[in-house]
């Protein structure tokens, strides 16, 4: 197992891609702090599943857009596991609307969770990782952060921001043995994408060279790679995992 006894935090890990990331890290031997904002029961299910895989886990509530909440979460994880090797910034929300109809609070909510949340969690763990002289930070961006997408000005701005933040954090922390990379998923089947109507889905499928939607596991496998020693000579990169949708 490539991540034996490594300690990981996955934000937004109660559902969707985050859930699969937490499980996949655990399958490689990592002990996982399963962060959730509201879905406590679902987070506990992920914890139970990780335990049944033979690894350790616990659920930790935190709104990643709140700095105090984030500090408490990181402290809780360090108290519990003693260190932090891997941070996966996955937590994200959508509040889609056309730019001309988008309300300021829709803009703020998405930027606060999807972009500021990455900054706050990264800042909070970087102290621990600097002391350790090692760490892996993996940010979940999105294909639309590179391509743009009508109806998602807030989401796209945040996901694009995550790519820039990834590069800067990578440069600042490289000398301390910490790598920072991003993954830009394409169309992955989750509750978030289930909301899209059939027509849009069909249109998207036509634009995917590999001619199928992705699964959360497709992202989780790449997270494992970025979390392991196998990726030790990579930092500041964005890996597009999208069936070839963006090239």
């Amino acid at each position: 197992m490539k991540l034996s006894s490594k300690i990981a935090i996955v934000t937004g890990a109660s559902r969707g891609i985050g859930r699969e990331i937490a499980l996949e890290l655990a399958r490689e031997g990592a002990k996982v702090a399963v962060n959730y904002a509201g879905s406590e029961a679902k987070a506990n299910e992920v914890v139970d599943e990780i335990k049944s895989l033979g690894s350790e886990a616990f659920a930790v509530q935190c709104d990643v857009s709140n700095s105090e909440s984030v500090s408490n979460m990181i402290k809780t994880v360090i108290d519990h596991f003693g260190r932090i090797d891997i941070l996966v910034n996955n937590a994200g929300i959508t509040k889609d609307n056309l730019l001309m109809r988008m309300k300021e609070d829709e803009w703020d909510a998405v930027i606060n969770t999807n972009l500021k949340g990455v900054f706050l969690c990264t800042k909070a763990v970087s102290r621990q990782m600097m002391k350790q002289r090692s760490g892996r930070i993996i940010n979940i961006s999105s294909i639309v952060g590179t391509t743009g997408n009508p109806g998602q000005a807030n989401y796209v701005a945040a996901k694009s921001g995550v790519i820039g933040l990834t590069k800067t954090t990578a440069k600042e922390l490289a000398s301390r043995g910490i790598t920072v990379n991003a993954i830009a998923p394409g169309f992955i089947t989750t509750e978030m994408t289930d909301e899209l109507n059939a027509e849009i889905k069909e249109q998207m499928l036509a634009n995917i060279p590999l001619a199928t939607f992705g699964e959360p596991k497709d992202i989780a496998k790449v997270v494992n790679f970025l979390a392991s020693e196998d990726s030790k000579y990579m930092t500041g990169q964005t890996l597009h995992v999208d069936g070839g949708m963006y090239m």
Partner: peptide, 9 residues
């Protein structure tokens, strides 16, 4: 700059 951050830590 980063050394100073670490010193303070």
């Amino acid at each position: 700059s980063l050394d100073v951050v670490e010193l303070v830590m």
